[in-house]
Design a protein around this nucleic acid. Sequence first.
DNA 1: CTGAAAGCGCTAACAT
DNA 2: ATGTTAGCGCTTTCAG
Lengths: 339, 339
Amino acid sequence: MAATIKDVAKKAGVSVATVSLVVHDNKRISSQTRTKVLKAIKELKYHPSRSARGLVSRRSGNIGFILREDHFSRSEPFYTKIFLGTEFQAREDEYYILLTTVPSCFEPGNKLPRFVLERNVDGIILAGKVPQNLINGLEQYKMPLVFVDYYPPSGKYPAVMIDNIAGGLNATEHLIQCGHQRIAYLAGDFEHPSILERFQGYKMALEKAGLPFTPEYTVLGEELPDRSGGYNAVKKLFQRTRTITAIFTCNDAVATGVLQYLKEEHIRVPEDISVIGFDDVEADIMLDPPLTTMRVPKEDVGVQALRLMVESIQSDRPKPKKILVPVELIVRGSTCHIN
Amino acid sequence: MAATIKDVAKKAGVSVATVSLVVHDNKRISSQTRTKVLKAIKELKYHPSRSARGLVSRRSGNIGFILREDHFSRSEPFYTKIFLGTEFQAREDEYYILLTTVPSCFEPGNKLPRFVLERNVDGIILAGKVPQNLINGLEQYKMPLVFVDYYPPSGKYPAVMIDNIAGGLNATEHLIQCGHQRIAYLAGDFEHPSILERFQGYKMALEKAGLPFTPEYTVLGEELPDRSGGYNAVKKLFQRTRTITAIFTCNDAVATGVLQYLKEEHIRVPEDISVIGFDDVEADIMLDPPLTTMRVPKEDVGVQALRLMVESIQSDRPKPKKILVPVELIVRGSTCHIN
DNA sequence: CTGAAAGCGCTAACAT
DNA sequence: ATGTTAGCGCTTTCAG
């Protein structure tokens, strides 16, 4: 149960070189010997060993996927979904993904992921905002890097980015089309550029519609952009003003906190206030009311990342192609026309 | 940027064998040469290549993880979570996980996962109910198998199982302690043994409490155990009888369908009817009301599976140790004492 | 069109 | 205690 290339060669009465050529579909093999060899391969259930092949070809057939610890472990469905998309596409392209996480604070002295040191990957996909020190370290190894949902200030790499600006714009425009004029934007900290981009889209929409930008309607840059952050943000907003009729949150987690607060305060959604989120996580549809949101095609983002990676691996001079993935308005029950 | 063992040997003025021994912490190396070699290793940033090592040692350092297509792709957070637990533990134990899916219908002629054929894994974890044909195929390769949440009728393997019977028992007992006597059990199809085991637990609880088992209170073995299945099941139940005061569902997805139906019918939860689910998925807490459920420690299940695998790999005669993972009652808002 | 042979980087006898 | 050496299974010139 472990036929090697030698076994095949012997059985087919040819040399191992010939077998190798047949396996690699080399055309300068007569169809007779090809058939002969193929037959032997089949009979022996021969499959080349990854390790042996990797040793000589310097290709592991694996792709590394790096995620920041806190993006991964904290039941963060967002990047997990992206990872699963990459996984899926990797199967199509005959690669395996080696996943690893890195600390959010990566010091220059820190050990790089084992798969890099052992030369066990042919390229690396980095998702989310990763430490610059890590990137610097990785660059030494001269393997293709592809970025996802974050673009480092240094260098030029292929990347797949989410169109957060257009998303923020469309979300806000949806609200405006529903007749809303006093629209709040609730963000967590700006640690991740996406949050800021979505805010830019929000402002653009206001401007386009000739609506004033009212700083009072925004809660920015405090706390984490999660459920409790959303809860506190809307609370704070309401201490300042009660005139807004709609809320755009930087993501769905924040929106759920908002919904929770509004429910506690007996403010009806969407009758009294419309709420729109961003991301489209699975739980949205279960909320009460189901959340209107901007869908980020997370699996698709992962798929695209793998495609870019495969291109990078195959062409020796990869171009830093960037893919901007559009987001889509999903209207559910948490937004409605104003009376 | 690719120091090999030879480079180290030369730099340290020793043979490659010595370097290898040092790398492997062999004790019969004088501490002087050890230091010398270690220094060279550090200076050259030497790390053994996985491929080379794998070729000679016949150990890839990878572990395969097999999931059924439909368990994975259909946004199935359950097995995904288990996988992530395995991933996590793999990092601790210095393994990488190669993930793959197989069709639910696996014919004897089908190709086995590529990582098996290429001998690119040292063992395989199988999660959920996998086709027997696949298991038969895998057995040929004589590598350790570990089962998760499913145990094949044939053979004896290490496995980590979820204590569904105790879970069903405890869930039902919780309801009984709340004063409920007429308790429904809603299942999807029995395709997966867990559903049946939870049902057994339910019956045991009734018996223990001296309550009659009323077939009329159960909807079994129809449709998929998902949200819409739950919706239809409770609808069907209510066409038969309206006397029940509590519902135990085979999982949380079914419970959400139940909740949806009850809301549409203006039946209050938990005032009119208590509902308890099973699994504890993330969305539970966002439901209205938040769902009482039996928590399955999914990540932990994955962790245990990897531990068993590492044991199996390391001992040449692995014993078919089985781990039964307990589940835990999480009381939230969907159950209450009956008046 | 096919074969011989030289490694890829490492481990593990076996010598010394 | 350390070095020599023979592969592991495969790819890839280079000859023929």
